[in-house]
């Protein structure tokens, strides 16, 4: 686990001060009744139709590990081991499609199963029951929060990772015909992606000897100053290589944004839609009055 992944961690991962002897009693009880309580928990999970993507054997094995870590956390007051396990578990179950509400559900079910068991065990002594619950609840809440947060953080990390993977795999520069490229930009344009698209586009211009590139931004919802300037720079860089760029699909909202931001659009050739852009591109490419072999000797006197 990387250091930055720990950043959300509470500076003091200790649980609130409680009566240690009561906690010892509680932990001993949970250990003595491990088999029954664990089975009860699995039964409740199945009943609530949680973790449907996992087999009963898998559920049982994970439940056992979480249960033991849970009891250890209650005993030691330290949630670090449980937290590490929760992260590891999340990493394994997220790719299989386990949802946040399921994780929250099973954690709350365990809390409920244990609380009910404690109630049954100590119901004859109301005073002791109260003190046991006082010791149990803050610790149990803390544990529930830790497991849930670990899951959500892991899920966010996976999403970021998938975004990177998609970004990396996308090769959106299309050759329409000889010397004409289209770069359809879809989705969120941030600085890193804009930079990557520029490199791809310029490389494709060189590889295809492109004369015109149509950059279609119909699929871009919003744009900020950094990205707008990047777009202007991309058009200019394409021109330096000898290719004309045409921007199409500029929504009125983005056009207004660009004007408000004061982006210099004087060098930009824009056409309303992709079809119009392609027609304009054809016109530019067709505009080659002299054949390749023609030499200045043939030029005007």
């Amino acid at each position: 686990m990387n250091q930055e992944d720990q950043s959300h961690e509470d500076p003091s991962p200790q649980m609130p001060e409680v009566d240690r002897s009561l906690l010892h009693e509680l932990v001993a009880y949970l250990r003595d009744n491990r088999t029954e309580l664990r089975e009860e928990w699995v039964a409740r999970i199945t009943q609530a139709q949680l973790l449907g993507v996992m087999t009963p054997e898998e559920i049982f094995s994970e439940v056992t590990a979480v249960y033991d870590n849970y009891v250890d956390a209650l005993e030691t007051g330290s949630i670090e081991t449980l937290q590490a396990y929760a992260r590891d578990l999340s990493e394994r179950i997220i790719p299989r499609g386990v949802e946040t509400h399921e994780v929250l559900g099973i954690v709350l079910l365990l809390r409920d199963v244990l609380a009910r068991a404690l109630f049954v065990e100590y119901q004859r002594d109301a005073d002791l029951l109260n003190r046991i619950l006082d010791a149990y609840e803050p610790a149990a809440n803390r544990i529930a929060v830790t497991v849930s947060v670990s899951f959500v953080e892991e899920r966010e990390r996976v999403i970021r990772e998938q975004q990177e993977a998609i970004r990396e795999l996308s090769t959106p520069v299309l050759q329409v015909r000889d010397r004409l490229l289209i770069l359809p930009i879809i989705g969120v344009l941030d600085s890193a992606r804009a930079r990557q698209l520029t490199e791809q586009l310029l490389g494709a211009i060189q590889a295809n000897r492109a004369k015109v590139v149509v950059i279609d931004i119909t699929g871009v919802a919003t744009i900020d100053l950094t990205v707008a300037n990047h777009l202007v720079q991309t058009v200019e860089a394409a021109r330096l290589m000898g290719a004309s760029a045409i921007i199409t699909g500029l929504s009125s909202k983005i056009a207004q944004t660009l004007v408000d931001l004061g982006v210099d659009l004087s060098m930009m050739r824009t056409v309303g839609d992709l079809q119009g852009g392609l027609e304009e591109a054809e016109r530019l490419i067709g505009h080659r009055p002299t054949a390749k072999g023609s030499r200045p000797d043939a030029a005007a006197p």
Binding site: E91, E161, E164
Partner: peptide, 13 residues
């Protein structure tokens, strides 16, 4: 580097 770190993690998994 950031990309490679992510790639390495994907391979591990």
């Amino acid at each position: 580097d950031e990309l490679e770190r992510l790639r390495a993690r994907r391979r591990e998994r």
